[in-house]
Each structure stands twice: as structure tokens, then as C-alpha cells.
Design a protein around this nucleic acid. Structure first.
Lengths: 195, 195, 195, 195
DNA sequence: TATGAATGAGCCTTCATTCAT
DNA sequence: GATGAATGAAGGCTCATTCAT
């Protein structure tokens, strides 16, 4: 009977190892040692080394989108939802430094991230943002001339770049301190009234 | 006497090869063949395979920043400069598909891109954008409460994400068509008056 | 208490699996699955994977020699016994295609077949043939100048090659059809009178 | 410019190593060391480890068939040719103990020997034997009722088994001493007149 | 300067075997 | 006895880099 906790243990170990050495410079045996198991055991739960990375990303991304969706649903309107989303996006990365390193730096080999197996999870985050913007437009809070698909990518790109700069800059400041400014500028860019 | 054209030929060949196979799946001998030289010759001009990537990026980035700086200098004010910058950013990528693929996808192995040897070139692009925003603020066109460093990263991230999505989406539309919308939303976000 | 049928079930499963995939490309777990048991169970009855092959061969070979000895004992003289032996040798292989594949193809990794643990069983087949030839020589049916040890190997080699060619040739004809010709040529080669 | 002697050096080294350890227990690095080169160099001349074995066999077999064809062509008639062929078959193996070990023992993993890539070379040896028998039949030396294809396999099988027994028996006697007896028995089996 | 044959370190993956349950 | 999850040794192959020519 396969151990239901093993995959999670392996993924958690992989996050730490990838954060430390980078994906390409991490050996499968490193992950195994970090997880406290034999390297062969990894292949009982993952098909290849790549599969670990892909699964890791999918899981984290799916968790994040579900979490974000849940959290913003309580907000009164689209503008508040965007503000909350930005704050959460930064918070989650700030809370888990290893994950931040992996997500912002190691995972950016295009074919494994936005492209390929993980495309679906990224899309669902984009869809979440777009749906909030559309909702805001319906409610008369977002300007009708805003192309929401483009605005979605702008917001994601803006948050993503702030996060990446923060990770690469050795986290010498608090990322969440930038949340209000980011949300404010973006919302002023797309909202009907001054915000 | 070193051939002054060889490094450029090698870089040009590398762009084509990396765009085709990705960095990690490109062999040094592939680049040599594409450049019409022997693989050993590459090591007369580049220290390692990584050095090709780093040099490639530095050169392209330096060229781009110089080009951008020159082009926007003719614009009447900061807002016009931003509009022009966005248009140029998209144009240059749309004009050279191989370069776009390499810059947006292959170069994103953090330690080689924003981090490490290329950090300086990225910084100078950021500095250019920030200087325009500061100029706009001095001229009373940009709101005084805008943190220009953060706004700079937001604009870069927004453009970058649009570009990445376009590359990964197989370039099924014209990237430059998004330029006006991106500039408009960003400027509305940071400018004093409606734009 | 060991199950007395298990070893036989495992060997039967192994014959099918080896015939399908070859010895080196068959996993112990494949044999276990074919036998409907867990792979660990195999090690209750066999020391190693090699042991399965060796035991398989010993058992089949011992069965075959006993069967052959019994069958030819009813024949009136040495020449008739040889004829019957050749017919039986081909029949038994034609009757069990999986066994034929394993014996003629998979088992030919010298050190596991004629050499090593199985040498005794092969020897006893050789001894059976030699004893028939010697008997024929005593009875004045086989020429006195025939070196029976050499003739034994010749006959075995001849039958074995016919069988191997038949297996490798996808069994596109009936192996037993060759029995008369093989026996006739061999006997003409060693007998006193024309046969 | 590839070294034209390297493949031969590698094959010669492989024969020695395979004879010593067997194919499956020989590492590519063993062959490299025996050949006095780096293991990577082997892959400049051979695609895989298997490719070494297949090429080895093809080359040796093609050489042997050409050699045999040339040697027997000087003999006066088919019967003399068969006698010479048997003598040569045993001589060549007796002369090169390492090759004998490899050919008679290591190469007998059906799919690599008679089957697969080497089938053509084996066939051409069979064809040579058959052509001699047919020639003898035309000349009235071989009985017309002899099925030459079957007789060919019998002769090959007989020689092959003698050779294998000799190799496995640690070569405690002279293989060539058996040549006359083998030829005599076979020829008596297929020839028209007593031989 | 240019070549490209040679090098050899490096690592993912398989699978026979073990052993706690 | 039976299980099957866990183990970990083993090795074929790649390819960046070197260097004799």
C-alpha cells in the first residue's frame, strides 16, 4: 500500500533542495537525502526528475489559486478583491522563502512553467483575475474600454516582477509593503473613479 | 589576431539555436555548426557555454537600452516617452522572433538573467524607465505619491508578461496591437490628469 | 509450510514471460504478476532470478531425458531408438512454443546452459544418446570406427540447430517434418549398412 | 579526421574483455581501458554497447565466410570442400581462444546472433555450405534424396556443438582432432558412395 | 587562428533483493 | 507463508572542454 504522505514529503524536500541549488544542479539523490529516503523510492511516486518539478508547480499553483479564490470571495467589490489579491500574492511568497525562490527563479524555464504541463494552472490564475475585472466592469467600477485580458497580464506581470526583484534582491525589504502601491497604481489605471 | 566578426557570428548562431532547441538542449557543437565553424573555435572567443548566453543577453540588452534611450529622447514629455517606450519594446520583439523566444523563454533561468552577470544591463533599463518617471514627476505630469521604483518594475513586468504570453501563445496576434492599451492603463495609473 | 505447487506455478509463469520478453528483459515482478503472486513470494522458493532460469532448465531437461529414455526403451534396436529420439526431440519442442523459445533462444547464455549448474542435465542427455550408439555398436549396427562421443555431439548439434532455425524462422513450417531426414542422414553416417 | 584504426582496436579489445567477463558483465569502461582510450571515445565509433557486439560478430563472421569461401575453392570436388571446411571451422576457433569463447558462448543470446542484425552474415555461411552440397549433388557425389537445406543445418549444428563443447570443456583436447571424424560421418551420411 | 578527435566527470534510472508487517 | 514498499548499487551515455596538430 503506497504511503500517501510520501509524494508530499518528496515535494517539500524538492522545494528546499531546488531553492538551495537550482533545479539543474540538484541531483535526485539530493532530494532523496533531504526527504530521508532512498533515491529509488522517489521513482515509486514520480516518473522522472522533471515530473517532480511539474507536479510541484501544479500543486502549489492549484493550492494558491484555490486559496486566493476563497479569500477574495469575501470582499465587497472587485476593487477590494484586487487589493486583497495583490496583498495575498505577496504574502504567500513572503511567508515561504524557499517556495518563493523556486517559483520566481527556478521555475522560469519557459517550457516547464507557462508552457507545457503547467499551462492549465497558470491559465486558471489568469482566469480568476480576469473574472474579477469583468465583475468590476459589470458593476460599473472598471472602465468599459479596458481590455481585461491585457489588464490581467499586466497585473500578473507587475506582481510577478515585484516578487522576482524582491527574491533576487535578497529580500532586503518587505515585499508586502509594496502591495498597496501596486494595487493603487493598477486600480487607478483601470477603475472609473479615482481610487 | 582575433577575428572581430567571429563573436558576433557565434552569438547570432546561438540565438537561432537556442530559439530552436532551448539553452539546455543546445550543444556547443550545434552552435558551431550553425555558425559554420569548429566547436573548438568557440572557445577562442567565449570562456564557457554559459558565457555565450550571458554575453548574448548583455549585448542585446545594452543595444536595446541604447536604442530605446535614443528613440524616446525626441519625445516632448515623459508621458509621450513612456508611450513610445512601450511601442518600441513590443516592436523589437515582434521584429526578431528568434530573439524574442530566447529573451522571453530561454533566458529566464534566474541566476543567469536578472541575477549575476547580466544584472547591470537589466538595471540600466530599469534606470531608464525610472528616470523618465522622475522627469514626469518633476514636470508635474506624474503624481508625486507614485513610488517610481515600484512603478518601474510594474511597467517592466507588465510589458514582459505581455511579451511572454505572446511568445508562448505562438504569436497568434500582433503584439504591438497591445502597446496602446498597456501604455494607457499604466499612464492612467501614475499620471496626474486623465490621459 | 511451503506450498508444493508454488514453485511449479512460478516456473510455468517464467516460461511464458521469458518467451515473451527474453530473460534479461523480464523483471521478477513480471513473473510474479504472471503467476498471480507478489514478487517477494518468489524469493521464498527461489534464491535469485538466475535460480529460476537454472531450475526451469534443469527440471525441463530432467523431464525430457526421463521421457525420452522411457519412450525409446520400447524400440527394438539402436537405429530405431535414434529415429524415435529425433522424432521426440522435435515433437516436444513443437508442442510447447513458449518452452521452445526459451530453450532454444533465451537459455543460450553459455554460462547458464551447458556450463555451470545445468551441465549435469545436459550431460545425462548426451549420455543417453551415447549409450544408444554404444548399444548399436555392440549389436553390430553402428560402425566400430565411429567415435560415439563425437557422434553424440554431432547428433545433438544437428537437432539443436534444426530446432533453433525453426524457432527463429517463426515456425513457418513443421519441425517434425524434418525428423526423418535428420535421422536418415545421421544413421547413414554412422551405421554399418545402408539405412 | 576520425582514426580509421580505432574501431578495429575497440573490437579487438572487446573480444578480449567479453571473453574474460562475458558481455553482460563487461562495462564499456572496461573495453575502453583494454583499448587504452577513454570511454567516451568508444561512442565516437559505436552507437551503443550493443553495437560493439553486433559489429564484432558481423565483421568476424563476414571475414570467416570470405576466408572459407576462398580456401575451399581450391579443392577438387564437393566432398573435399566439405572436409576442408570442417577443418577450417575448427582451426579458426582453435587459433583464437578469445574469439572462440565470445562466438560460442557470449554471442548466443538469440536475438543478437542468428536473429536480428547478424542474420545476414549467418545466412551467407549457410548459403556457402548449401552451395557446396548442391554442387556435389550436380556432380553425382551427393545423394539426390538429400535435402540440402536440412543437411546444411545439420553440418553447421554438428560443428557448432563440437566447438561449444570444446570451449566449455576448457579446451582440454585439440578440437581439430575431431575434424576428420565429423567430416567423415557427415559425408557418409549424405554422399553416394562410401567415403 | 582554427580544427575536431579525444577526454572523463557526472547522473538519472532500473530492478533484484530485503524485510517489516 | 505472503506481501509489496523500500532500498541502493550499478553503469551506459552525453557533452562541455581541452589540446595536439
Amino acid at each position: 500500500m503506497p504511503d500517501p504522505d510520501k509524494p508530499q514529503q518528496i515535494i517539500d524536500a524538492a522545494v528546499r533542495v531546488f531553492a538551495r541549488n537550482g533545479y539543474y544542479h540538484s541531483r535526485v539523490s539530493d532530494i532523496a537525502r533531504e526527504a530521508g529516503i532512498a533515491s529509488g523510492t522517489i521513482y515509486l511516486y514520480f516518473k522522472t526528475k522533471d515530473d517532480i518539478l511539474v507536479t510541484l508547480f501544479r500543486e502549489k499553483m492549484a493550492d494558491w489559486v484555490a486559496h486566493a479564490r476563497r479569500e477574495i470571495s469575501g470582499e465587497p467589490d472587485a476593487l477590494a478583491k484586487i487589493r486583497r489579491l495583490v496583498a495575498l500574492h505577496f504574502q504567500v511568497l513572503e511567508t515561504d522563502p524557499d517556495l518563493a525562490e523556486v517559483v520566481q527563479v527556478e521555475l522560469r524555464q519557459g517550457h516547464k512553467f507557462f508552457r507545457g504541463a503547467s499551462a492549465h494552472e497558470v491559465s486558471s490564475y489568469f482566469a480568476l483575475i480576469t473574472s474579477v475585472l469583468d465583475e468590476g466592469m459589470q458593476a460599473g467600477l472598471i472602465r468599459r474600454d479596458v481590455p481585461t485580458k491585457i489588464a490581467t497580464k499586466m497585473l500578473f506581470g507587475a506582481m510577478d516582477q515585484l516578487a522576482t526583484s524582491w527574491v533576487l534582491g535578497k529580500r532586503t525589504y518587505r515585499l508586502t509593503d509594496a502591495a498597496d502601491a501596486v494595487a493603487a497604481i493598477f486600480l487607478k489605471g483601470v477603475a472609473v473613479h479615482a481610487v
